[in-house]
């Protein structure tokens, strides 16, 4: 039975092939079969994780909490120089110039990405907005969030900063960020489940030295990463505590 690898569904479409290369790279380095399962739904992925169908996950920080505290996963590494930040944007033609100008009844375009949505809602609190007094449009991806703003179907949209930055110049020129989070300590993390225990050390070593290997460098580039950094148990617990302060 191969072990199962999955990736938080918020990765950019341009990097899909990178995750397949990563899976092949890991199998060759570790000498074990690994199956890569990708999802386009956070909810479906979470359901499969809970059913024990995942052994290795590149998890968003919100799901990391469940994987570590409920399912006994261990954080092995985090992506270097890559934190998760949220952008709140409006159409370039909008009269709104600050979050505090948004009014109850505003239409919000968002995704089911739990981190971005949570951070975005926190940044709307300063306008006294919450899910009870805005209209939510939950869309499949950030391109659709942008389109919704451009067509005037939503007043404001939430984006993962990386997702916003990777939109085409043309789309971005039609939007205006109101605020961008600057948290710096919330990031994705590669977590290994109990079934990976015997391979954990080899896997950590493989990840940390990927950047020194010409093939590894190519794989990283395709994943949109510059390398991996070791993550201690306490680093992980700290990030999870922080996430816990943000969820109601």
């Amino acid at each position: 039975m191969p072990l199962n690898l999955t990736v938080s569904p918020d990765f950019a479409p341009d990097h899909i092939s990178g995750w397949f290369y990563f899976n092949t790279f890991l199998q060759r380095q570790l000498g074990i079969p690994i199956h890569l399962e990708l999802y386009d739904s956070f909810a479906k992925q979470r359901e499969d994780i809970r059913q024990g169908k995942v052994d290795l996950s590149y998890a968003n920080p919100y799901d990391a909490s469940m994987l570590v505290r409920e399912l006994g996963f261990k954080a092995l590494a985090k992506p270097k120089q890559k934190t998760d930040e949220t952008v709140i944007a409006v159409s370039a033609h909008s009269d709104i110039t600050a979050v505090e100008e948004l009014k109850p009844g505003s239409v919000l375009a968002t995704t089911d990405d739990p981190d971005v949505h949570t951070m975005g809602m926190i940044m709307l609190e300063s306008a006294d907005l919450d899910e009870s007094n805005i209209e939510l449009k939950t869309l499949k991806n950030y391109v659709l969030v942008a389109k919704s703003l451009l067509k005037g179907e939503a007043d404001v949209g939430f984006f993962l900063k990386q997702g916003y930055d990777e939109l085409s110049q043309l789309i971005r020129s039609e939007m205006r960020p109101l605020v961008s989070s600057q948290i710096g300590v919330i990031h994705h993390v590669l977590l290994a489940g109990p079934a990976f225990n015997e391979h954990q050390e080899a896997l950590s070593q493989t990840l940390l030295t990927m950047v020194d290997d010409p093939k590894g460098q190519g794989v990283l580039k395709n994943m949109g990463l510059v390398g991996w950094e070791a993550m201690s148990e306490e680093d992980t617990e700290f990030m999870i505590d922080l996430i816990d302060t943000l969820v109601e």
């Binding site: 505090e100 926190i122 940044m123 609190e125 300063s126 306008a127 006294d128 306490e234 617990e237 700290f238 505590d241 922080l242 816990d244 302060t245 943000l246």
Partner: peptide, 28 residues
């Protein structure tokens, strides 16, 4: 600030507290 404080529990033991502060609304 709007402050949230949570206990840091490690292996069932209280080790300290994390406090996270964010921007409050003028009405609050």
């Amino acid at each position: 600030v709007k402050a949230t404080v949570i206990p840091n529990i490690r292996n069932g033991q209280l080790m300290g507290y994390t406090s996270v502060r964010r921007k409050p609304s003028r009405s609050k």
